[in-house]
């Protein structure tokens, strides 16, 4: 059982890594503007459609990477200290750019969606049910 899990994980991890390296390679060789990791993602996506049988092992190997992705950002986010003066020098404009526009677009987009999807109101009751639980 454990051995089976191990093999599933290894197969999945190999597929992900192969797509990653192939993505880097292709992005580099063809001087694509799209980053290598994203090329790899597109390739894995295509592969999942072509070979649905590998889905289980890929999903198994992807699970820990996806659910703990926050951990992988730590080294980079720590490096923001280097750009600290860039941030403090422009703090007003950055604050407006991030806070105000985020709220504005969030509200307007939601309003727009309500207006566009006026016919889909039937979806709402199930949501209310869940909220009441």
């Amino acid at each position: 059982m454990l051995l089976k899990k191990l093999i599933t994980g290894l197969v999945g991890a190999s597929v992900i890594l192969a797509c990653y390296w192939l993505g880097l390679f292709i992005s580099d060789i063809f001087h694509l503007a799209v980053p290598g990791a994203v090329c790899g993602l597109m390739m894995l996506l295509i592969l999942l459609f072509v070979l649905p049988s590998i889905k289980d092992s890929v999903a198994f190997a992807a699970q820990p990477l996806l659910s703990h992705m926050s951990l992988l950002f730590i080294p980079v986010v720590m490096g923001v200290g280097v750009y600290w003066t860039n941030i403090t020098d422009n703090i007003t404009s950055l604050a407006i750019a991030v806070v105000v526009t985020t709220c504005l677009v969030l509200g307007i987009q939601a309003k727009l969606t309500v207006w566009l999807m006026a016919d889909d109101e039937s979806e709402t009751p199930s949501n209310i049910d869940e909220k009441c639980q």
């Binding site: 992900i16 797509c19 990653y20 290598g36 790899g40 889905k55 992807a62 992988l72 080294p75």
Partner: peptide, 23 residues
């Protein structure tokens, strides 16, 4: 950052793994 390079490197494969939820 150089000591924890492994975590940073894993971000590449993790980005590729995003194909699973998209699928």
């Amino acid at each position: 950052q150089s000591y924890t390079y492994l975590l940073h490197w894993l971000l590449g494969p993790a980005t590729v793994a995003l194909a699973v939820p998209i699928h």
